[in-house]
Amino acid sequence: MIVNNQEIEAKEDSTLLQAASAMGIVIPTLCFHEALGPHGSCRVCLVEIVNGARPGLVASCTYPVEEGLVVETNNTKVLKTRRIMVELLLARCPDSTKIRGLANDLGIAEPRFDKENESCILCGLCVRVCREIGINSVGFIQRGTNREVTTPFQKPSEVCLGCQACAFLCPTGAIKFEDVAEERKVEKWKTSIKLQRCSSCSRPFFPEPLQLYLKEKELLVPENIGLCEVCRRKSLGSRLASILSRKSTV
């Protein structure tokens, strides 16, 4: 394969994006995450196949490598089209720092299109991570311009764990969790999750459903169950102290 005039060998079953990354070529992405696989929706990672069975622009995150392909990742056509993709997303989410930064990199100051006031670019990372965890607390509804990400029946989620993976992956900061008193609240999903109290200091600290989930998956160290981070450290500390003191008495 030839990428940006450089001959390369790529692993079979990898994508153009992976092959390019392996060469140190940076292709901007929004909806892609290594752990979740490709989605192909934002179209920011476009590259051009200049020689192959089907030449043209393709999303590098979904397109598989092929013997003999000639690919360019930042020629004029690619940049021009990528710019419009980002400009369209900037018009949708003019206040997103991430999109603005990407736009700046591509030389876009202001979008030429009608601006909206959205914070979500519908990249689906939250939907996919929630599915990966096996919870399916959020998903896409409607279609076209009405498409959005929401909870079942647009009501407070009955299954959300409060794990915050969605917020962690969201590129635009559209999802925010906040712990208030005994609840973890997430406005975007209109949902509150009860926090468990620390069995030692009785401070609310951990989402109850998440605890259950981790228990079920056997992902918790038994002695840590029910302890907040501070108390866990304290307990660890005191255990260490006792070990040390035993050693010193020997």
Partner: peptide
């Protein structure tokens, strides 16, 4: 109705999110 859709999800053993996703599409 929402009730019916939830029943369907339960009987088919699929997340109710999936049912809601499909009916609104």
């Amino acid at each position: 109705s929402e009730d019916l859709l939830k029943q369907v999800a339960q009987r088919l053993k699929i997340p109710s999110m999936d049912v809601f996703s499909v009916v609104t599409f």
